[in-house]
Amino acid sequence: MNIGYEAKRVFHNKTGLGNYSRDLVRILATYYPENHYFLYNPKKNKETLFNTNLDNVFEKLPSTPFHKKFYNLWRQKGIINDLKTDKIDVFHGLSGEIPTGLKNKNIKSVVTIHDLIFMRYPHLYSFFDRKIHFYKFKKSAKQTDLVIAISEQTKADIITYLKISADKIKVVYQGCQDVFKQNYSLEEKKEVALKYNLPQEFILNVGTIEERKNALTIVKAIKNIDTKLVLIGKQTDYSDKIKTYIKENNLEEKVIFLQGLSSKELAITYQLATVFVYPSIFEGFGIPIIEALFSKTPVITTNSGVFPEAGGPNSVYVNPDNVEDLKVQIEKLLGNESLRNEIASKGFEFVQKFNDEVIASEIMQCYKSLF
């Protein structure tokens, strides 16, 4: 089978959507080497985010001078001629988009939709962005042969907001990068702890530091707890709000802001953490939870939405708006090592359902179901 991918984010996005795209191609090429995987990249990237060093993976760029210059037009429509030339059987839009004209060329299609946060929380997006996102997602979901949702929560939102039939949607969970599944030596851990001045015991939160992620609630919860919080992620205006609270309450010594860690350094930091706390208001899935579970670090997260899907039956769940609730659960875990170990062990068992082999098999079944 020849499988094509809308690969803009494979080559140009370092975080969530890029990681999903790269991991999916990697595991499919590994577990199903008999197929050929074509990555349609609109423009060359100076930075190497994905090495196409597998014999069955090929990077494809616009083939004409016009489309090299107007690469967005190529992504939307011009790509169709290249797909026919390459004899593509299935085209997979990895982040909510597919080009126009696939059905006319008898090319089967799949699109992954990660979340519809812009519909649930419109105030977090500009009017223009909301309209563009909705148009793209609605069009792709209607035109494609199969929609992949990354969670039951996202499936429900696709049905509600995009008015797509449940029969057309298949839930296939995300996994996480292999680097989070490795065991690291004491020496490697010491090196990272020293480099970033990490304390012996600390609470960890990972993700863009924005309002929806709700990190201020963690800061408030640890105000009177003898521990430290490490926040890893890109900072936004919301970070200033957190820093103002920290300054007003003399918490400068208790909160550490970090960003720019390599994937390996981040994975080691997960393993060094005492507890991972993720009181996000809403996510399409919540990859950091999976990363923490693979790292054998106990998780405290939100008690509604997608979070119980990602965290499993043994993680600790709280009301994300209730500071006292979070405080109590943090104190409970910090004060009970055997409970932390039990939660971490059972969480590690649960997270195996998000392993590469399982995800690869489910995605391949989606492709085969089209024929």
Rank of each mutant, 00 (worst) to 15 (best):
Q182R: 03
L24F: 06
A29S: 15
P122V: 13
V351R: 02
F257T: 14
I359S: 02
K105I: 09
Y238C: 06
K170R: 04
N322S: 13
L61E: 10
S140N: 08
E337Y: 14
Y245K: 05
V25R: 08
F354N: 04
A215T: 13
V179L: 10
M364H: 02
K181W: 12
F307V: 12
N250F: 04
N355R: 04
V323R: 05
K254T: 11
F307L: 07
T85D: 15
E211Y: 14
K142A: 12
L146Y: 08
K105V: 13
R130Q: 15
F50L: 09
K220N: 01
N51Q: 14
E252P: 04
G78P: 06
N2I: 09
G93A: 09
Q259F: 14
N35Q: 05
E97L: 06
D129F: 10
K189F: 06
V255W: 00
I281P: 12
Y173A: 09
L49Q: 11
T217H: 00
V316K: 05
D178I: 07
N51G: 11
G311C: 02
F134V: 07
V172R: 00
Y37L: 10
Y270K: 04
R120W: 10
D145R: 00
F202N: 06
R212D: 15
G233F: 05
I3G: 11
I256S: 06
Q235I: 07
L216P: 08
Y5W: 02
S295A: 11
Q200S: 13
G233P: 06
R9Y: 14
E201P: 05
K181Y: 09
